[in-house]
Design a protein around this nucleic acid. Structure first.
Length: 222
DNA sequence: AGATGATCATCT
DNA sequence: AGATGATCATCT
């Protein structure tokens, strides 16, 4: 399998996107000689990784944007034929201890969502290979969108800073929410409780709600 | 353990 | 059917 070099510019990345739009997952996989799994149960991140490879994203599992030199984050997103996202979008992990020096301005959420390349995949077919790549979208949040997300972030971080991790649930937040992000419900990571003691709890992550990403996609297509 | 890539499964 | 909570694979 040959190596795909990172795009040198946003223009180069746009050209790569133009080459894959309208293709099926099967066609793209064939280009790189990889086998498409029958389903994603045991390969949940497979499509995302295929596009990281095809577009030359190379940041690996480091907590930085996929195209680090361009400051662009890559997100594949499954959508219906009516442009509705079928899933929420994972943004990043949450540090449940050491919250004092975290600010919105230096937050990973802000960094990750400031410039996103959305690659919507029309996922009507259960057959992964038959799913179709819709037009990729280079998106920057508007001032209004950013302000709502900033408000969500502050509300959610407030719980964590007060040691109320266990009171957080998926219903909180307008665009941004907190949900478990773990291998299973027995996974544990470091957190602080209300009286400042370290303890272990279920790891959590920030996610963008599907109702929000639906607007991003519709604003760009309709 | 914590970061990346997410989707699955169950509840409402 | 949509949303929340649970889960799967891989890398460092």
């Amino acid at each position: 399998m040959h190596n795909v070099l990172p795009p040198e510019s946003k223009f180069a990345l746009e050209n790569s996107c133009n080459r894959i739009v309208g293709k099926t997952i099967g066609e793209i996989a064939k280009t790189y000689g990889v086998v498409v799994p029958k389903n994603l149960k045991h390969f949940k991140g497979w499509i995302g990784q295929l596009f990281e490879y095809a577009l030359g994203a190379n940041s690996g599992s480091k907590p930085v944007p996929d195209f680090e030199h361009l400051g662009i984050e890559l997100k594949t997103i499954p959508i219906s034929d009516k442009l509705k996202p079928l899933e929420s979008t994972y943004v990043c992990n949450i540090n449940l201890h050491n919250l004092v020096q975290q600010t919105w301005e230096n937050s990973l959420v802000k960094k990750k969502i400031s410039h996103v390349l959305w690659v919507p995949i029309i996922s009507i077919s259960d057959n992964i290979a038959n799913r179709i790549v819709a037009a990729p979208i280079f998106w920057r949040p508007s001032v209004e969108e950013l302000s709502v997300i900033k408000g969500d972030w502050h509300e959610l971080i407030e719980y964590l800073a007060l040691g109320q991790v266990e009171d957080i649930h998926g219903k909180l937040g307008i665009f941004l929410q907190v949900r478990p992000k773990a291998a299973n419900s027995k996974s544990r990571s470091k957190a602080v409780n209300q009286i400042g003691q370290l303890y272990k709890t279920l790891p959590r992550g920030f996610y963008l709600r599907a109702s929000f990403t639906e607007q991003i996609i519709k604003n760009n297509y309709l």
